[in-house]
């Protein structure tokens, strides 16, 4: 299998979907000749032209809303928001229009669209280029929220997102765009939206993560296996909404211990829902309280390198949390 970076997998997925379905088009700021702020659409404008790889004005709400309108009218838009931090002007459109349309129109209209946005910190982007925004949207029935952590998943899940009849928010860990490399199968494949992935099978405890933190958790799990003989199971949630309850419960049934890791802030973060699911439906399996490792409850990730490092979970911090939980 060819090895590629996460962002190359994203580009390839869009390339294949543009080739497959003439209704698919990309719209966003500088997605055309410029190739996007992170170069995710590199080469696509040259191949498909200005009608299908569309530069928009600097106006996030209308990038999303034009996509909703076009999706209602049966096109298949892929809307790019340059940074997840910039998605907030479109919040009303996503929550009030995209998420509710199928429900409120008596099934007359659905919204087959993808909104892609790089998220997350660790790149010295400071407060407005580092945010993790998933928890705002995982609270909204009608949306799907996907965050891949490997090139293989990024490609397969993005292709599924384009074909999904519902609005899919597709958040990409930008720190991993080029840092995460991996095998990607040759030829056509998709990965279904919904099921989590067992990234590492283990029997001592379960760690639930997604995106960059799933990548880091896998590294941390190997480290504690090597250094401490702890056999951690790593579940890459990858689809956050709808949540794969079955995978969460199946894992804790086996291990009896759970740690959730995300770089989004702690309180009311996605980890709270995972913990609640386990408390509610997996209580009898548990040998320890559910632990969470997450960003601190401060308004955003600051610029300074030292503060950024305090904020972000990393393989060492995750390994320490695994050791603590294993020792419980």
């Amino acid at each position: 299998m060819p090895v590629m970076t996460l962002i190359e997998a994203v580009t390839q997925a869009m390339d294949e979907e543009l080739a497959r379905d003439p209704r698919v088009f990309i719209v966003g700021e500088d997605v055309g000749a410029r190739g996007g702020v992170f170069r995710a659409t590199m080469g696509l404008h040259a191949k498909y032209g200005s009608e299908r790889v569309v530069d928009s004005p600097l106006a996030e709400l209308s990038i999303v809303a034009i996509g909703i309108g076009a999706a209602l009218a049966d096109l298949r838009p892929i809307c790019e928001i340059q940074f997840a931090d910039f998605i907030h002007p479109a919040f009303n459109q996503i929550v009030n229009e995209a998420a509710k349309m199928y429900y409120r129109s008596g099934e007359q209209w659905n919204v087959p669209m993808v909104i892609r946005a790089p998220y997350g910190g660790g790149i010295s982007g400071a407060l407005y280029h580092s945010q993790s925004v998933e928890a705002f949207f995982t609270h909204v029935p009608g949306l799907k929220v996907v965050i891949p952590s490997t090139p293989q998943d990024a490609k397969g899940l993005l292709k599924s997102a384009v074909r999904d009849p519902n609005p899919v928010l597709f958040f990409e860990p930008k720190k991993g765009y080029r840092a995460i490399k991996g095998d990607v199968p040759e030829g056509e494949y998709t990965i279904p939206i919904g099921p989590a992935r067992v990234a590492r099978s283990g029997r001592d405890l379960s760690v639930f993560a997604y995106g960059m933190m799933a990548h880091y958790t896998t590294i941390a799990a190997e480290k504690v296996a090597r250094e401490d003989g702890i056999d951690a199971e790593v579940i890459d949630l990858r689809t956050l909404l709808p949540v794969d309850k079955g995978a969460i419960l199946e894992s804790v049934k086996k291990t009896g211990k759970a740690l959730v890791v995300h770089e989004d802030t702690f309180t009311m973060g996605y980890g709270a829902e995972v913990a609640a699911i386990i408390a509610d439906e997996g209580f009898n399996y548990m040998d320890a309280p559910v632990k969470r490792l997450a960003g601190p409850d401060v308004p955003a990730m600051p610029y300074s390198h030292s503060m950024q490092e305090f904020f972000m979970p990393n393989p060492d911090k995750i390994a320490a949390a695994i050791r603590d939980l294993a020792a419980y």
Binding site: L61, S62, A65, I66, G67, I68, G69, A70, A71, L72, A73, D74, L75, Q93, E97
Partner: peptide, 10 residues
């Protein structure tokens, strides 16, 4: 309003 623009884009 922006949805109308999206429909017109179609």
């Amino acid at each position: 309003l922006p949805l109308a623009a999206g429909i017109a884009l179609k």
